[in-house]
Simulated scan of single mutants.
Amino acid sequence: MRTWFPKVYDVAMKPLEASRFKEIRRDLVEKAEGRVLEIGSGTGINFPYYKNARQVDAIEPNPSMSKRADEQLRHAQVPIRVHETGAEALPFADNTFDTVVATLVFCTIPVPMKALAEIQRVSKPGARLLFFEHVRMEPIFLSKTQDILNPLWQKICDGCQLNRDTLEMIKKSGIEVTKVKSYYAKLFLYIEGTNRMTERMNHDE
């Protein structure tokens, strides 16, 4: 992972974060209650918005990103612990979390379906799953443009997949999607879901 990327990422995202993204993040993160898992916490931009969580375990595989999160930790209103690990093999027991938060991270996870399975494993039955992601766009000319740009985008943006259909993956994983809101011509989606995996497993048994 590129050590310079966290600095560039913060600068590049600043205009969006200062406008609509701040409102979206606050709305999403304030819904997180109980024990919370944050996937890909990056530079900790969500940390100050946690108000209703009892405890937050945040995972971030890039040490350069998690190091830059120290400043945000000082502004946190709830206990937050950062773990330097990936999403495909979470170091937590089954049925641990009441809420899972993931914002602008599923574009970079190498094996996203495995990460979604892990999220369902470690979250409790009925747990609230909250996502804010950029996705593959619906108009064919826009999605094709994303396909063309993706190889270069991936190299520049530390593995980010510009054309990943994250909403479809979430649905295929077995998560029950309860709410979807779109922004910027459906490039960004706010997704609320519920963990039904354990409930289905118990029923099958």
Rank of each mutant, 00 (worst) to 15 (best):
D10F: 03
C160I: 15
H134T: 03
A87C: 03
P151R: 09
F188G: 08
I170F: 05
V56T: 11
V135G: 07
P91R: 02
S182P: 10
V78M: 07
S41W: 08
V82L: 11
A185P: 00
F5V: 01
K124A: 02
S182A: 12
G34Q: 14
I80W: 07
S173Q: 06
A87T: 01
V36G: 05
R74F: 01
C107D: 03
D27A: 13
N62A: 07
M197W: 10
A93T: 01
R26F: 05
H203D: 13
D98G: 00
I109A: 05
F131T: 02
S64L: 02
A18K: 13
L129I: 13
M197T: 04
R200H: 08
A185T: 10
E192K: 10
G34Y: 14
I39G: 01
K51H: 15
D27M: 03
P15D: 03
I119Q: 05
G44P: 11
F47E: 05
V135E: 13
V177A: 11
N95V: 01
D204Y: 02
Y50E: 10
M137G: 01
T166K: 08
R20P: 00
D147S: 12
N163W: 05
P139A: 09
G193S: 07
F92I: 00
K22C: 15
M201D: 06
E33P: 02
I109N: 00
L142F: 05
D204L: 12
V78R: 12
L187P: 00
K22T: 04
F47D: 04
H203G: 02
A102Y: 05
K14D: 03
N163P: 11
I39Q: 08
R68D: 03
W4M: 11
Y184M: 13
K114T: 11
V36D: 08
L73Y: 03
T145R: 13
V100I: 07
K124N: 11
P125Q: 04
T198S: 11
C160V: 11
E138H: 07
Q120K: 06
E133K: 15
G193W: 12
V122Y: 02
R74P: 00
L16W: 09
V36A: 09
E60W: 09
E176P: 06
L149M: 15
Y183N: 03
K124G: 01
I156N: 09
F92C: 06
A53Y: 06
K179L: 12
T178Y: 12
I45E: 05
D204N: 12
P63T: 13
T43F: 07
V100C: 09
K179D: 06
I170L: 15
F97C: 00
V111Q: 14
T99R: 01
W4I: 11
I148T: 08
T145L: 15
P151T: 06
